[in-house]
Simulated scan of single mutants.
Amino acid sequence: MFAEERKTRILEIVNENDRIEVSDLTQQLQVSESTIRRDLQDLEQAGLLKRTHGGAVKLENTSFEPTMDEKELVNIEEKMEIGKRAAAFILDNDTVILDAGTTTLQIAKNIEAKNVTVLTNSILIALALSKNKDIKVVVTGGYIRGEILSIVGPITDKIIQSFRVDKAFVGTNGITIEDGCTTPNIDEAHTKNMMIQSAKEAYIVADHSKFGKISFARIADIDEIHGIITDKSIDEAIIEKYKSNNIQLIYG
């Protein structure tokens, strides 16, 4: 197989699987790791994929972020499933941080615990919880990102840093073992990290489509979080990979 044919095949494999490991490519294409690494470097320089530690991922616009309306139309059933599963972790008298997002909004709608205090940077979550007499709502200050109706920025971060809560539930646009949890917006990433640092237990809530994807700004490394709450459609190969790395996946 000529070099260009091999590179074309690599692109096909990456686009079919979203991500691939160097070791897998060496087996499939019957060439050395050094050859594969050179091919990946050439493909990355050509803007056709993104290299990661030990492999590569399908190239996506890492700065792109859909609007709230667009997010609400994607994986609705999975987000409702995650919302119910995550809400079950919230106990009576808990203090909780809920990040802005469509998945965390589902958590808010499913809280059954009593005497809960929720700190949130989401206008929609604050409105949804205002109808629940068993929940006290604290809303952060800051500036509003109109695209997703979240409140972020230095004021938001300072407020979050002044609290210590039992649990935080934080959304993400992408998640990999190598690159951690990522999101397109720098301010969002920093606010989400503050939430994680302010909680005794921090959970990432992400449907199965977020695995293997990488966005522009890092929220946190995998070892900074307590667990990942996802849906039952998560691929078995991903489950095994995360288990082998001692990462708690909560699903099904």
Rank of each mutant, 00 (worst) to 15 (best):
I247S: 06
I20R: 01
Q41T: 10
A56F: 09
I186N: 03
S32L: 03
E21L: 15
Q197K: 15
S198Y: 11
L119G: 02
Q41P: 00
E72R: 15
T35A: 13
G146F: 12
I204K: 03
I196C: 06
E201Y: 14
Q161C: 05
L25F: 08
Y143S: 11
M1W: 10
L11R: 10
S215V: 02
V165F: 02
L49V: 08
L124T: 09
A88Y: 03
V57R: 10
S63A: 14
L59Y: 13
I107F: 09
G252D: 14
E5F: 06
D92L: 04
K241A: 11
Q197D: 03
D221R: 15
L98M: 08
N61E: 11
L98H: 11
A206E: 01
L59I: 11
F211I: 02
E78L: 14
D166R: 12
K213M: 09
L43T: 01
E21M: 12
I159T: 10
T117W: 08
S209G: 01
T120R: 07
S162E: 15
T117M: 13
F216E: 10
K114I: 12
Y242Q: 08
R85V: 04
I111H: 04
Q248F: 06
F163V: 03
V138I: 15
T35M: 15
T104K: 14
Q30P: 00
T230N: 07
S198Q: 04
M80G: 08
H208N: 07
N193G: 10
I107H: 00
T120Q: 05
N75K: 15
K136E: 11
K213I: 03
R51T: 10
N17A: 13
L25W: 05
V57I: 13
V74H: 10
V137H: 03
I238Y: 04
N17T: 12
M194L: 08
Y143R: 11
E224V: 02
D69Y: 05
H208I: 07
T182W: 13
F2A: 08
N15E: 15
E224G: 03
V205G: 01
Q30W: 01
E12M: 13
L149G: 00
S233P: 00
G101T: 09
R218K: 15
S198G: 04
F163E: 07
D39C: 11
I148S: 01
R6H: 04
I123A: 12
E78N: 14
R85I: 00
H53K: 10
H208V: 04
M80A: 15
E5A: 13
V22L: 01
A126D: 00
E236W: 12
I228G: 05
E240A: 03
Y242K: 10
T230P: 03
T140R: 02
V96W: 06
E33H: 05
D24W: 06
E65M: 06
A128T: 12
G101E: 09
T103R: 12
K58L: 13
K243S: 15
A56P: 06
A88T: 05
A126T: 06
T26V: 12
K79H: 12
Q41C: 11
S209Y: 08
Q248T: 13
I160E: 02
F216A: 10
F163D: 09
R85E: 00
N15H: 12
S198F: 09
G146I: 07
L49E: 04
D39E: 14
I90G: 02
S34E: 11
A113S: 07
D69R: 08
K114L: 10
I76H: 04
N115S: 15
E70S: 07
R218I: 08
G212R: 07
T182K: 06
K79M: 03
V138Q: 10
E236D: 08
V165T: 01
